[in-house]
Design a protein around this nucleic acid. Structure first.
Lengths: 330, 330
DNA sequence: CTGAAAGCGCTTACAG
DNA sequence: CTGAAAGCGCTTACAG
């Protein structure tokens, strides 16, 4: 089924057939319609390889990631795909672990296939993928991973997200808010902690640890073994920690949310929704981030000028039952 | 950078250049090496679009999935990609939710791009994707989703996996084994329940419910409120249920694994590894499943004959701490 | 208003 | 041993 078949069936030349189908050139409206009808009847679909050879556009983009777990990649991927499918663009997913050689292999394969652009994503805002993406013959956009200074980089606004969470706790009347979070060497951890201190002050020290439920348990045990007044709210660095915290509090007979409000970060459904009670948590809107990254790489591929630089996208608070209080009024 | 540039730089015709690079044709070894060296120096990489136009091979395959959550798709995808990257094949990931129109859009886009084949995957062994994949001009392989009778379909051997779990419980000395699982209308649930009954007998009724922690809690509450002897082991239909069961037992003061052994199903790290104690659970080896699906679709694309039919791939037991006992001796 | 020709980047018979 | 020519499926000046 090629354009030759269409032309033959419609009784025109292949040039005319091509122009009819692409709504270009000039010809009798009757001819154009007939060609289109015939093409539809015989189920003609243009070969994108041939088309790409001419147009220098393959209508494919590559998504490179080192987040094999998929926690961050999947929503980003969903956003990209959703934004680009309407433009006829398909997405190559390349998981490169932390292997530079594998990364290079995938990049080479994508370049051979003439991808219109590459989106790099990962599991940390402050780490680069283990592969050099500068000086590529196609545009590169970074999403949720560190980019080069002159590139377009999308990241979540963790400071704003954390502020949202802590302000919410203040708004529902909490006064002694603790912060149990991940390792201090994470950029996100520092951003979130800064926002926390800004809003909550420094009555409670920030408790740095690791990204696990176990650390949530341990932190509660540690804090509750101290003398003096206890927190009436805990802002956690992620949902896993929050789940550990909630479980630990319950096991001590402390009621959530009546005695202590808990907020998480990530809105990772499997954790947040299954916690008892389900977690109020910050959602980084990674799908939206993916959407914007997708549209941006497409714009660059079409030769549009895009201002380089860092773009922080706002987070939103997802209110469930671990805080008490009502939904925010926005 | 085209083959013209290579030919010019090496002082040969483009035919000779092509043959030199592809190790075809006949020419002086010295010429061949010179062409290759020159190509390397100027960084020539053949345009896969042009190559595909001739060879009718695009070296791309599509992965179609309706599992947006990614629980099953991600390992399958990893297996496919890992198996195919060595063959120069890249993978389009298409998440179609349960939307037939979106599915058709993605299939059309892939066919336009001349994919060498399509792999369909999903979140249930006994459901089809909402898009018709029969009579496509490219080979289709099904992995962890229901295929057509004449197709090649890979699925996990849930019966064998369940047998592995229950036999393990017997082997470590458990005698009264209960089974708390998901909805009976799932094929996997029936398969697992059959194997359970085969090995454990029918002293305990199978408890059907939903795939959630809450159901795990509820099932324990229900069973432990009954009179008579209690189970000394529970085989759970998935890890989420198992986590609920373990938490519920702990809250009742029943020790896991000392008093009751618990086994899960899925080996979903985020659940299995974070449970206290971490879950012994059945792993469906989805990555291996993906690997085989990838190699099969490639073989079909190359015109090799592949026997159609259902292929059940074995599961393996991952031993952690929720059962007690030692590692199996295999 | 329509079609013949050139060309995208490559490969592959075929001729010399 | 090497190269000119045709062709993969399409688009796009250009000529009529």
């Amino acid at each position: 089924m090629t354009i030759h078949d269409v032309a033959a069936a419609a009784g025109v030349s292949i040039s005319t057939a091509s122009k009819a189908l692409n709504n270009t050139g000039r010809m009798g409206e009757e001819t154009r319609q007939r060609v289109k009808r015939v093409a539809g009847e015989i189920g003609f679909r243009p070969n994108a390889l041939a088309r790409g050879l001419l147009s220098k556009r393959s209508f494919t983009v590559g998504l490179l990631t080192n987040d094999t777990y998929g926690r961050f990649t999947l929503p980003v991927m969903a956003g990209i795909s959703e934004a680009l499918v309407d433009h006829g663009v398909s997405v190559f997913l390349c998981a490169i672990e932390d292997d530079p050689a594998l990364g290079q292999t995938h990049v080479d394969a994508m370049l051979d296939k003439q991808v219109d652009g590459i989106i790099a994503t990962g599991k940390r805002l402050d780490r680069r993928l283990p592969v050099d993406l500068s000086n590529l013959p196609v545009p590169v956009v970074y999403a949720f991973t560190e980019g080069t200074p002159d590139s377009v980089t999308f990241m979540s606004d963790d400071e704003q997200g954390a502020r949202l969470a802590v302000e919410w706790l203040v708004q529902i009347g909490r006064r002694r808010i603790a912060h149990i979070t991940g390792p201090e060497n994470f950029f996100s951890v520092r951003e979130r902690a800064n926002a926390y201190r800004d809003v909550a002050g420094s009555r409670e020290p920030v408790m740095y640890g690791v990204w696990s439920e176990v650390w949530g348990h341990e932190a509660v045990a540690r804090r509750w073994s101290e003398d003096g007044e206890k927190p009436d709210a805990i802002f956690c660095g992620n949902d896993q920690i929050a789940r550990g915290v909630v479980d630990a509090l319950r096991e001590r007979g402390i009621r959530v949310p009546e005695d202590v409000s808990v907020v998480g970060f990530d809105n990772w459904e499997i954790v947040a929704a299954q916690t008892r009670p389900p977690l109020t948590t910050v959602d980084m809107c990674l799908k939206e981030l993916g959407r914007q990254a997708g549209l941006t790489v497409l714009a660059l591929a079409e030769g549009q000028a895009v201002e380089p630089g860092l773009r922080k996208l706002p987070c939103r608070l997802v209110v469930r039952q671990s805080c008490g209080g009502e939904s925010p009024e926005d």
